[in-house]
């Protein structure tokens, strides 16, 4: 439809691990899609479901939440709590009609520059496939048939 459209992804990265992973990817001159805008958070446990929905409302095509691997949280349990929160948010918003591809989560440590590149690439490509986020547009999407009442 629109050849110039590029997916916009917002990433909430934990400052102790995934943010370091992203940094390492940069300093190692690894190439990853420039579609991600990174927001540093003190812990993946900081990510409120509201952040996710707000990003989608503001027009981002996808949201990535990334934190330390289970067991590695700087604050002991932050990522475990994030896991429950993200799981529920993702599944629930899916029920409301938001495509599952738009909300993604991963565990990436500070040394996993490779995994960071991989995740961002995959997520970006996934978003490219499902197309732009028109969820909060005033008008109905064109390819939508009449919803079952």
């Amino acid at each position: 439809m629109n050849t110039e459209w590029e997916p916009q992804l917002v990433g909430f990265l934990c400052k102790w691990c995934s943010y370091g992973g992203a940094d390492l990817a940069g300093t190692s001159r690894k190439k990853y899609p420039p579609n991600i805008r990174i927001i540093k958070v003190p812990c993946s446990g900081r990510v409120d479901p509201l952040f996710i929905l707000k990003a989608l409302q503001l027009g981002f095509d996808g949201v990535l939440i990334s934190g330390c691997h289970p067991g590695d949280c700087h604050y002991q349990t932050g990522n475990y709590r994030a896991r429950r929160r993200v799981a529920i948010t993702k599944k629930f918003l899916e029920y409301m009609g938001i495509e599952p591809e738009r909300i993604q989560a991963s565990w990436i440590s500070a040394s996993e520059a490779g995994k960071f590149v991989e995740v961002v690439t995959e997520v970006t490509e996934g978003l490219r496939e499902i197309g732009p986020n028109r969820l909060f547009d005033e008008q109905q999407q064109q390819n939508t048939t009449e919803a079952a009442a």
Binding site: Y95, G97, I98, Q141, E146, A147, A148
Partner: peptide, 16 residues
Amino acid sequence: ILKGISPQERWEFWRR
């Protein structure tokens, strides 16, 4: 309970 319809249709339902 909305099951068996596409995500777009579900979103459309809630939009309305």
